[in-house]
Design a protein around this nucleic acid. Structure first.
Lengths: 223, 223
DNA sequence: AAAAGAAAAACGAACGTTCGTGTTTTTCAG
DNA sequence: CTGAAAAACACGAACGTTCGTTTTTCTTTT
């Protein structure tokens, strides 16, 4: 038999990893057996070892590939944000985070597996330097906000945006993985708008607007 | 042999559970063996089965006891809060949440174990009805804030406080369990004051104060 | 025939649990 | 007061599986 083409190898690996991922997520890493993986992947036990040397190597490969998927997804979400602290942006941002969490909820379970069984070895960099990355990503926008005086003097917009990000992210994670079952007592959409409102008022300078009872005119601030 | 006194039984169970807890946390539930637990508890394999019928029963008992510990801890934290949305209260609140997360970081790992290996069977109620509970706990304070007009009309103080709680909680959890390593780019103390500032401005009505450059006088609001 | 992927068999170790057997203390008949 | 039966905890060997991995044996294509 000749050597399989790289694409064929990838296809086989793909089937094995898909099976392994589902099982890891359903029952954890240690509770999943190689026989289990092989069976679900429609191949034999021995053959799995033609593609991976150990079980952990399978996990590593899954996480590695998934990591780049998530990175891309996040980048896409950030890329469509023009003005990071504008209410409309944050609402849309919240909706996107919700979708991301729900679409890839396996990934976050893998993260927990990693925390528990490997002391977060594979995911260390996920939250390291979060603010730093966001600050760099939106450097021009944040600087513009600062110089325009749109944000409070004692507020770092990068920190504020990070807080929003983490709040959204965590909210939907709890909803999805912990059975939060609307733990804010509102619909997801309401949570997004409520949080957005809170953050915007908390972060942005509101020049003489929004007294009690006064209807907001949204675009009082011009520059 | 006569029946052991209830206190003696509790003592023995305590040693077994202490050992099991450490091992579960270090390596997960399925990766921990009964022999492992027995060895660390200084007893024999068979004897463990005199106290528990299965391995899962040990986990259940650990979680149950820990749950009441955490509940008490949280109640104590809430009990010393007089005015839930006052900046000083929130700063102190943040510090307490930090301590709670750090003191019981095993507990949160157990929570992840539960999410992963038991579909969150034992922890379901942890986040269910969170807002509802907080709203009841601080009913008088929240109503007073509302009637005094201290909060924005479109803000539910219970939701706001829940948001603060979750944000603090999640921040320190990420720091502790995910190796966040100051993922907000600030010291913990700075994070607490920054977040507090954001939330207060976002939640509380600021009557004509805090224009750019104007030093805040904190207690401009009277009636 | 040669090469390599796939399958199956085999291996030793470890698993959760059961079971039989100590070991120790109480009970109570004598 | 004695000592045998009873009761219950402690123990570890043993059971039947299952584990991750290795080795061997097909099977298929060059």
């Amino acid at each position: 038999m000749p050597k399989l083409s790289p694409s064929a190898i990838e296809k086989n690996k793909g089937r094995i990893e898909e099976a392994a991922k589902k099982l890891f997520i359903k029952q954890g890493f240690h509770a999943t057996s190689m026989r289990n993986i092989a069976g679900r992947a429609g191949t034999s036990l021995g053959n799995v070892y033609n593609y991976y040397r150990t079980k952990e190597e399978i996990l590593g490969s899954i996480i590695g590939k998934y990591q780049t998927t998530i990175d891309g997804r996040l980048r896409a979400i950030f890329d469509e944000i023009d003005e990071p602290l504008k209410p409309e942006s944050l609402v849309r941002f919240g909706q996107q985070i919700k979708k991301m969490v729900n679409d890839h909820h396996d990934f976050w379970l893998l993260m927990y597996i990693d925390v528990l069984e490997f002391e977060n070895r594979h995911f260390r960099k996920m939250f390291e330097g979060l603010v730093h990355n966001l600050r760099r990503r939106f450097a021009t926008q944040f600087e513009e906000l600062k110089s325009r005086g749109a944000v409070h003097d004692d507020v770092d917009p990068a920190v504020g945006f990070t807080a929003v990000y983490m709040q959204f992210f965590n909210y939907f994670l709890v909803e999805k993985l912990f059975g939060g079952n609307h733990h804010f007592g509102l619909t997801d959409e309401q949570v997004i708008t409520q949080l957005t409102g809170m953050y915007c008022r908390g972060l942005l300078q509101n020049r003489g607007a929004s007294r009690k009872g006064a209807k907001r005119k949204t675009k009082t601030q011009s520059g």
